[in-house]
Amino acid sequence: ETQAGIKEEIRRQEFLLNSLHRDLQGGIKDLSKEERLWEVQRILTALKRKLR
């Protein structure tokens, strides 16, 4: 995994995270989306740690 590859994956995950946040802010309670949001946040945290 290169730095560029990790950064690209971070961009993808952040896009997905923002999309999930928008969907959930629409007021629709969706447990699967909430679980996915937490999963994406965990992935992002792990990726950012790899960059250090």
Rank of each mutant, 00 (worst) to 15 (best):
E1S: 11
E1I: 10
E1C: 15
T2P: 05
T2Y: 10
T2Q: 09
Q3L: 15
Q3T: 12
Q3E: 11
Q3M: 14
Q3N: 07
A4Q: 10
A4V: 08
G5I: 12
G5P: 03
G5T: 12
G5D: 13
I6Q: 01
I6C: 08
I6A: 01
I6L: 12
K7S: 05
K7R: 14
K7E: 08
E8F: 03
E8T: 03
E8G: 04
E8P: 01
E9Y: 04
E9A: 11
I10E: 01
I10A: 00
R11I: 07
R11Y: 05
R12G: 01
R12E: 03
R12A: 05
R12Y: 08
Q13C: 15
Q13K: 05
Q13W: 15
E14A: 04
E14S: 04
F15S: 15
F15Y: 10
F15P: 01
F15K: 14
L16Q: 03
L16I: 14
L17F: 08
L17A: 05
L17I: 05
L17R: 06
L17D: 01
N18C: 15
N18Y: 12
N18I: 13
S19H: 05
S19K: 11
S19N: 07
L20D: 00
L20V: 01
L20I: 07
L20N: 00
L20A: 01
H21E: 12
H21W: 15
D23W: 08
D23F: 09
L24D: 02
L24H: 03
L24E: 03
L24S: 03
Q25I: 08
G26H: 09
G26P: 06
G27L: 07
G27E: 08
G27N: 08
G27R: 02
G27H: 06
I28R: 06
I28D: 11
I28Q: 09
I28N: 10
K29I: 13
K29M: 08
D30A: 03
D30K: 02
D30P: 02
D30Y: 02
D30N: 05
D30H: 05
D30C: 03
L31G: 07
L31R: 13
S32D: 13
K33D: 05
K33F: 10
E34D: 04
E34V: 14
E34S: 09
E35K: 14
E35M: 13
E35N: 09
R36T: 06
R36G: 02
R36A: 13
R36H: 07
L37N: 01
L37E: 01
W38G: 07
W38L: 14
W38S: 09
E39R: 04
E39Q: 08
E39S: 03
V40E: 02
V40K: 01
V40N: 01
V40Y: 03
Q41T: 09
Q41A: 07
Q41I: 15
Q41S: 07
R42P: 00
R42V: 05
R42Q: 11
I43G: 02
I43A: 06
L44D: 00
L44N: 00
L44F: 01
L44I: 13
L44V: 04
T45W: 11
T45F: 08
T45R: 13
A46E: 14
A46Y: 08
A46G: 05
A46K: 06
L47V: 00
L47F: 02
L47T: 00
L47P: 00
K48R: 14
K48Q: 06
K48G: 02
K48A: 03
K48V: 05
K48S: 02
R49Q: 13
R49G: 04
K50P: 00
K50A: 10
K50Q: 13
K50E: 07
K50S: 07
L51V: 02
R52E: 13
R52P: 03
R52L: 15
R52S: 10
R52M: 12
